[in-house]
């Protein structure tokens, strides 16, 4: 029997509100705003209040899926990355780099997002970069 809270940062947008994830026997049972957080000062939006829900959700994807014959099939990471790389390469060669866009995620760190836009601009050669939480 264990109940504890884990201090973390909300992964839903760039605000970075501080929150506690409530853990009861290894299961996430709730989220609470961190009252003493200097950024959010004890407030959260609706996404932050429900941030615990996706982590252990049974519908969460844990393996990459590749569509084959109109059906999504589980695949290995190597297979998935190879597919993405080869297809992107093909599109770039055939239609030019501006036919490709990059959408980055609030669930990544700043540094990871930086790397992705670097990949978009320096490797692929497009400025089509956007972010899911561009506020």
């Amino acid at each position: 029997m264990e109940y504890k809270t884990v201090l973390t940062t909300c992964g839903y947008c760039g605000c970075g509100c501080g929150l506690y994830l409530e853990v009861l026997d290894g299961q996430l049972v709730g989220a609470q705003p961190c009252k003493t957080d200097s950024v959010s000062q004890g407030g959260l939006c609706i996404k932050g209040w429900n941030v615990h829900e996706f982590v252990q959700n049974s519908e969460r994807l844990t393996k990459p899926l590749i569509k084959k014959d109109g059906q999504f099939k589980e695949a290995t990471w190597d297979e998935a990355l190879d597919t993405v790389a080869s297809r992107l390469k093909k599109i770039k060669e055939e239609n030019g780099p501006d036919r490709i866009a990059f959408l980055t995620s609030a669930k990544c760190t700043n540094e990871e997002n930086y790397l992705l836009q670097k990949l978009a601009r320096a490797v692929v050669g497009t400025n089509n970069v956007d972010h899911c939480a561009r506020l």
Partner: peptide, 30 residues
Amino acid sequence: MEHGHPAPFMFSRENLGEMETLVVGDVRYP
């Protein structure tokens, strides 16, 4: 008190050693 923030926590016989970290202050949690 953890990482400089008071946080909700359940003290039990299994974690009696952490009793030193129990705090009371004006910060309130449900």
